[in-house]
């Protein structure tokens, strides 16, 4: 799995950082998401899929799925 993040689309909701904190964080100043691990380990995959599904800006895409 590879995490692709479309940063200009991000609305800083932070849903991803709450659902998969090992893979996503938010920038302090504006809350825009940061991908901490673009190729997350297997045990994170469910959380990352959930984060991508609930992202209100559809800014997270998963490749190699």
């Amino acid at each position: 799995m590879r995490v692709e993040f479309d940063e200009p689309k991000c609305v800083a909701a932070g849903q991803c950082a709450m659902i998969a904190p090992a893979v996503f964080d938010q920038r302090d100043e504006d809350g825009v998401a940061i991908v901490l691990d673009a190729t997350p380990p297997e045990e994170e995959h469910d959380a990352v899929r959930e984060a991508a599904a609930v992202c209100p800006a559809a800014a997270i895409r998963l490749a190699g799925e």
Partner: peptide, 10 residues
């Protein structure tokens, strides 16, 4: 505000 500031309130 920085959006992170609101998360503890959630």
């Amino acid at each position: 505000m920085p959006p992170k500031a609101i998360r503890p309130w959630r």
